[in-house]
């Protein structure tokens, strides 16, 4: 019991320490980009519309980062996902996750906010997941782990499939793609983009409504 209490206290302390650190801007790293102030944005609301798909985007989305890892404009990415959702007769809502930059959790948090329980997680570098509110964080309905292989057509189909899950259809998952050399070509760039995204977190704001 003693260990448990100690542990709980330590975790709490650690979280608080971390929160304070993030609030007080720059811990190390000379090449730091200015942090965007999101405090004026409306907090993300719990949805009630059973027809909605909530798209959770990363903290740097359309602000610090404007293109995916292969240079696809994020404006086009989000437009295509929304178009896919709408083509199936469902509605889309976008929220920005300022608490975590992990795509699994971004997707799950979006799904939990979604009136339908279906959400999409989208990192600014382009990595995407379709999630359901009752799944484990690191599980998923469909995962697109290799951002460099994503095209606007795939993003459109992600939107479509997410909407089909809302409708309760038997969904054929989007065919997997694989580039066995993706790590050699892109992993360093992926790390740098993820650092940029993580640097933009404002955990105290949790999630905000985001107009694309």
């Amino acid at each position: 019991m003693e260990i448990n209490e100690l542990l709980v206290r330590q975790i709490t302390d650690a979280v608080i320490r971390e929160l304070n650190q993030d609030r007080s801007a720059a811990p190390g790293g000379e090449d730091r980009i200015e942090k965007v102030d999101y405090s004026g944005y409306p907090r993300a609301k719990q949805g009630t519309d059973p027809k909605e798909v909530v798209i959770g985007v990363g903290a740097a989305f359309q602000t610090v980062i404007k293109n995916t890892i292969t240079g696809i404009p994020l404006d086009d990415v989000i437009r295509n996902i929304i178009a896919g959702i709408e083509e199936e007769g469902m509605t889309a809502r976008v929220v920005k996750n300022l608490k975590t930059s992990d795509v699994g959790f971004i997707g799950l948090e979006a799904a939990k906010l979604s009136g339908s329980g279906i959400g999409i997680g989208l990192q600014s570098k382009g990595t995407t997941v379709i999630h359901h509110k009752d799944l484990y964080p690191l599980s998923n309905l469909e995962l697109f782990p290799q951002a460099p292989l994503m095209t606007l057509e795939t993003y459109f189909n992600v939107g479509k499939n997410a909407a089909k899950y809302v409708k309760g259809e038997k969904v054929l998952p989007i065919a997997c793609t694989n580039d066995p050399m993706v790590r050699a070509k892109y992993q360093v760039k992926a790390a740098l983009m993820h650092i940029q995204e993580t640097d933009q977190l404002s955990p105290e704001l949790n999630m905000i409504e985001w107009t694309v």
């Binding site: 782990p145 290799q146 997997c176 694989n178 580039d179 066995p180 050399m181 993706v182 790590r183």
Partner: peptide
């Protein structure tokens, strides 16, 4: 390797 779902070994 095109079939390796750990993104290539």
């Amino acid at each position: 390797n095109y079939d390796n779902m750990f993104a290539g070994s």
